[in-house]
Design a protein around this nucleic acid. Structure first.
Lengths: 147, 147
DNA sequence: TTGACAAATAAGAATAACTCTTATATAGTA
DNA sequence: TACTATATAAGAGTTATTCTTATTTGTCAA
């Protein structure tokens, strides 16, 4: 293992440790796979991505691991649309574009969306934690198909 | 049937007709049930609400009907969170509060959210249709339970 | 007003995405 | 190193659809 990989491995271990999670080979593999994945993968996608090199990691472990990562804030779950849960390894505040045809998610880094006003009709005793913006539309790929 | 009910029935028939859908007794029942329901019901909830008086309407019909209503803009599907699809009969532009503990949805009628700026990093060829705000937090009920 | 026929429905099977159960294994610490 | 709470694998179970097939029914055109 070269130096860069060693450093990355230590970083992962640190993150798991800080989250109060035991460091298992499965978790290291799953964490790395999500980081490596360009977009917002679901459990199935990660499972497929790792299973060739790690045929002994079960789907259940992938799913459970991703959920526990999300619960501890290591990843976020993308605001969903009744499809499989998708994970976002970038926990810096940002929003999402979403294609209503294919469900593809794109990041939106438009700053003003991070400082939206707080609404004036908050339900009784509702404690606001965060505000998210979803920009719905049709992506370039789907526009071609449907027009 | 009294006059008010007659008028309501005609209104439903008009809506279905305008949407290019055939007027069936099942659709009238399902449409009315969603209107009568206070919050944002899922197919299961509507099925349960109507099945006592209409034991011969199948769950599949309820589900299929709600989806076809949503496809034609009669209802909206609430931006979901990996639970059953929830429907919103109010198609006037508004946003939603969402309890991250129990998933309950509340309407947000804060006007400024209806005129958000268009972001400056729209992906190549992405056609923006609408922008939604989701205000995440913990509802009063759940705050009591978890504290 | 009555056929014709595309659309809609009921019932049950099939599927997708988890979620649980149980037995086994293993990190982390005492 | 031994112990024990955690974590894992494998497979069964659950939830929320979604599909298939046979049957029925709105709607329109004659």
């Amino acid at each position: 293992m070269n130096k860069r990989k060693q450093t990355a491995l230590n970083a992962i271990k640190q993150i798991l440790h800080n989250a109060g999670l035991r460091i298992t080979p499965q978790r290291v593999v799953i964490y790395s796979a999500v980081l490596k994945c360009a977009n917002h993968p679901c459990a199935e996608k990660i499972y497929k991505a790792i299973s060739l090199e790690n045929p002994n990691i079960s789907f259940d472990t992938v799913n459970r691991t991703l959920i526990s990562f999300a619960e501890r804030g290591i990843f976020n779950i993308v605001e969903g649309y009744h499809t499989a849960k998708c994970y976002d390894h970038n926990t810096v505040e940002h929003n999402h574009y979403r294609c209503v045809k294919c469900g593809e998610i794109f990041d939106c880094w438009f700053k003003p969306y991070n400082k939206l006003a707080t609404p004036d009709d908050i339900p009784e005793n509702f404690a606001v934690k965060r505000k998210k913006v979803i920009i719905e539309g049709v992506c370039g790929k789907c526009k071609k198909i449907y027009s």
